[in-house]
Write a protein that binds this DNA or RNA. Sequence first.
DNA 1: ATGAAAGCGCTAACAT
DNA 2: ATGTTAGCGCTTTCAT
Lengths: 326, 326
Amino acid sequence: MAITIKEIATAAGVSKSLVSKVINGKPDVAPETREHVLQIIEQLEYVPNNRARNLSLGSNKDIAVILPSSNYVYMRFIFRLYEELRRYAYNANIYVTEHDKERERSIFQSIRANGLAGVACFIDPEGSEETCNWLEKLNVATVTLGEELCSKKFDRVFCSEKDMALETCRIVSERSAGTVHVLMLPESKAYERRRNHCIRTALQNCGLKAERVVFCQVSEVSAEEGLRVTRDILKLHSAGIICSLSNVLTAGCLRAMNESPHQMHEFDIVTLGDLSLLQDFGFSYPFVTFPSEAMARATADLLHHRISHADAPAKVKKLKPYCHNS
Amino acid sequence: MAITIKEIATAAGVSKSLVSKVINGKPDVAPETREHVLQIIEQLEYVPNNRARNLSLGSNKDIAVILPSSNYVYMRFIFRLYEELRRYAYNANIYVTEHDKERERSIFQSIRANGLAGVACFIDPEGSEETCNWLEKLNVATVTLGEELCSKKFDRVFCSEKDMALETCRIVSERSAGTVHVLMLPESKAYERRRNHCIRTALQNCGLKAERVVFCQVSEVSAEEGLRVTRDILKLHSAGIICSLSNVLTAGCLRAMNESPHQMHEFDIVTLGDLSLLQDFGFSYPFVTFPSEAMARATADLLHHRISHADAPAKVKKLKPYCHNS
DNA sequence: ATGAAAGCGCTAACAT
DNA sequence: ATGTTAGCGCTTTCAT
């Protein structure tokens, strides 16, 4: 067992409460006593037990972070969030639902049992209702992440898809020198329709004519789809730009490019989605994505604010897209 | 404040300890009483507070995981470790030192204050001594990760560099059809010399003749180095194999390949290091790396075992390399 | 300025 | 089978 406040008290010949006051920097302690106690603490290498302190205080410094999947698009965000939270002495606990409802249930159960200061939760576009109920039940400081509106009650940090689409098309229009190919989503789900709508609007806004041929894209679309589609595009021998919203699809797309390396340089790819990892490997296509760093910072700030001011009105933080221009 | 055991006791008209017994499934409770209490618990949606329980038990279910950097080579391991730990009801807290000693200090300080069940720590090849001292001071179940021997006292999970080098060369020798180029480490540090030694030995063992030209590699070597070296190799117009130990270097290497895409297919790359992320993007070069999944599982198992049997002799788990063959 | 005592939510002897 | 009590490590009144 680690050394406790009691042993410090005994060693210093004072009471527990006096030691506690020293630890917490309370003013009503005689300077000499404080010095003495501090010395003993140093000497015995005492570190106060946060758990006990929190139990006593009824407070807590743990933040649960909930991700829908263990996808590496979250990695940059996560690593940064750890840092940003640490600024406020919070500690992050990561949970991944893997889109599984049963799993989500058990996660929220365990979060509840651990008792924490707050939650940062990426809202799965599909089935956000249950998640929302869970979050409400937790009844702690909550920041929801992503465009999906889970409940107006919660603070929210997101980067608008409309803005991202707009930014992407802006970059495309600057580089375009031929037919533009756009990979878009199948429109079976609401959020897919929304995305495509964003892209179409953005294309118009940027003066990219509709007749410029367009294919279809994303999120849950397979790499095979990207492969197939890109192969078709390549057959046309048309220089152009492929604009996508997902890494999976882009993967297929890149694979197709790789098959015909001689055409590689005739193509320009602009993606809506984080390709920074690829960039480490020397492929630096421009891309537009949500700003991981800013998002992490805003999330930590909002959480801290909410924890300090529980009754503050819900804030929504809309962030600008992150554009990586090669 | 969340609902507590006391309120359940009152609501059920029994004592706190009785409720506690029901929660913990103790045998000496009358079936009807148990049923009744359970019902109240359900009704009031009561979830026991783990912190308080742990404080009382003097136990803990948190595992600190210490990484030297926020590199994505750890990602697969991390995500898997979360799962494996969850099997034992443990929870992981990630800390990243970023190779900064001051930061490491503050991390260990905070770990100590939070009080936890165990630590899983990747040992930085350089400066492992301090880390080792910290780990000893923590005095909790510890698993060190990596080939670096931190102290014999700790359990350890690792994949031998010798084995990885051997496996890599084996694959190389199977595919080789021309000059073999090997990128190796500069030999300023001890661990670099060790690595190179492993590779040289492996080359010999696999009958890859020494005269086959060889360059140099890794870990802290820049992408620019890889770029330069690979450019040189490409100038020779020699088909061959490049074998490396780091993603950074491989990055430069791939970038050079990308510059001359027409040569791309004449080359075969075998790397010692995880390229699985690249693979998602359609580039599936064979590679050899430490087995993230197995490592995560072994880590969780060892930690749990150590936590249950504090005095068990230190175990060392040596894992086979993970080979990704395209 | 210092200490005694109560309490945070829970468990574990030890009664009864 | 159930309740009483003490205690985990700490903070915080409230006396002194």
